[in-house]
């Protein structure tokens, strides 16, 4: 599956730097580190809950840098008025997790 990831390299760099600034442990950010960042978007908590569901692809309660990029992508799109999908469209699944 060589479909390009919808997260563009420039955007990925921005998301990666936010990821690093949050102090990941072992390459992972726990929910309590990511939660305040997402709350900062002022989006409704039920929307953020769905963003988390869609981003935490392995359901381990933590986000690695690719999962975090998916979360940030969805938050930014939601802030632009795009609805958060009910399930993750294939182009949004990080190439590393297909």
């Amino acid at each position: 599956n060589d479909m390009p990831w919808v997260v563009k390299p420039e955007e990925k760099m921005k998301f990666d730097s936010i990821f690093e600034s949050l102090g990941p442990a072992g390459g992972m950010l726990t929910g309590d580190k990511v939660k305040p960042v997402l709350l900062n978007s002022k989006l409704p908590v039920d929307i953020l809950g769905r963003v988390w569901e869609l981003s935490d692809l392995d359901r381990d309660g933590m986000l690695d840098r690719d999962e975090f990029s998916v979360a940030m992508y969805l938050v930014y799109r939601a802030l632009e008025g795009e609805p958060v999908p009910m399930s993750l469209p294939p182009p949004l699944v990080p190439p590393s997790k297909r």
Binding site: T30, G31, L38, V45, D60, G61
Partner: peptide
């Protein structure tokens, strides 16, 4: 790690 009630891994639930 998550509040009581939680088998959930979602910090927003």
């Amino acid at each position: 790690q998550y509040p009581a009630g939680g088998s959930s891994t979602n910090p927003f639930l």
